[in-house]
Write a protein that binds this DNA or RNA. Structure first.
Lengths: 202, 202
DNA sequence: CGAAAATATGAGTAATCCTCATATTTGCAA
DNA sequence: TTGCAAATATGAGGATTACTCATATTTTCG
């Protein structure tokens, strides 16, 4: 579990740059032609390295997609942790959560490649569990706050609600950016209402 | 759009039986070894036909997966239409919706292959839009009832809420069956609360 | 400098989807 | 029944693509 995404740690500067270049090119390929268009040989060619070298940095194609997704995850996880850090009341939590959704939606609209990266994750049998894992991590951040604010509420119920809210948040974003903007806005608004009602009702 | 899933309509009895056998074997393969384990050559072999004959009935692998998913969809669509048919009040709608969720969850628990079929759909670039289309169809059924019960409410808002509720229902089911039973139950319960609150608040 | 370790290379292997030229079966008119 | 045309069946092989590995090159360092 230590370093599943790279065959060897990019300890040297050139290695790290190489990995960054590979991931940047992979992102471009997916952004330009969709999540199915990631070809290992083309990725090597674009990066200006041989196919063999590419496989020195990433043990297989799954690892490339995993690394792309993990970058997105790390960003959103930090966003969530930061957004929920200072909430001291249920009202503040509702506000903070609403802002998080708005921010996340704005990011999804600005960088539609994120959705394609997630498609690539779901297309890969070895990575399909990743989404649930990420929902769990984000759910745990939310559940921790909820337990503080509702010390008497059932912990298992809080955990389930937090996991569900985070998981459905992802699903809502992906749906919202795949329809026209006005409808997407309405979908996100409806999700926000649903999620905040559930959280404040706990 | 007429018959995208079969190269020619199974007008003859033997053809229909053949198609049924192919789909039954495809379901078995997916159930036994997951959504990535569907191999066209093995499918032909199991069915006792040549690979060329298989491609006479289904133009490509996507078409097989599409047909599997469409079977599930048709079943659940009928369930939804039937469940919502007689509701004449918002309370009745909430009850009917809750029962639908319970039924759908029970089906998912009893036939976990449904989740794997959906994985296969999402793994296939040509089919990825299918899930949203299905959510739209189901959302339309729900929205029609909502418009009857809330004639003064904003139609676009109703439509968005209905679409979202149906889409997130699918997502919830897939999540719920991928965790242990007790937690799955809590997730489904939380989803039911969220969905029914949103629908009754319209 | 020179050897050993690390890294790079790309032709080749394996797996898999799908095609198509050919063979077989079926339906039907004479 | 027979013979022919249309429908259907066959499976070797083409095409694509992830990935390997023997070899070559570069880097490190005593």
């Amino acid at each position: 579990m230590a370093e599943p995404q790279t065959r060897r740690a990019p300890t040297q500067k050139r290695s790290r740059e190489r990995v960054d270049a590979i991931l940047a090119n992979a992102t471009d390929m997916i952004a330009q032609a969709g999540s199915d268009a990631l070809r290992m040989s083309e990725l090597a060619q674009r990066t200006g390295i041989s196919i063999g070298s590419l496989y020195q940095y990433f043990p297989d194609k799954s690892a490339v997609v995993h690394a792309l997704a993990e970058r997105c995850n790390a960003e959103s996880r930090a966003c969530i942790a930061e957004g929920l850090a200072a909430v001291g009341s249920m009202e503040a939590l509702a506000d903070a959560f609403g802002s998080l959704i708005d921010t996340y939606y704005a990011i999804f609209l600005a960088e539609p490649v994120i959705r394609d990266i997630w498609s690539a994750v779901q297309a890969d049998g070895a990575l399909r569990a990743m989404e649930v894992e990420e929902s769990r991590r984000n759910g745990a951040l939310l559940a921790a706050r909820l337990r503080m604010l509702r010390p008497t509420a059932d912990a298992a119920r809080i955990e389930a609600a937090a996991l569900l809210v985070m998981h459905l948040g992802e699903a809502t974003m992906r749906l919202a950016v795949s329809v026209d903007r006005a409808e997407g806005d309405r979908l996100v608004a409806a999700y926000k209402r649903m999620a905040i009602r559930e959280l404040t009702a706990l």
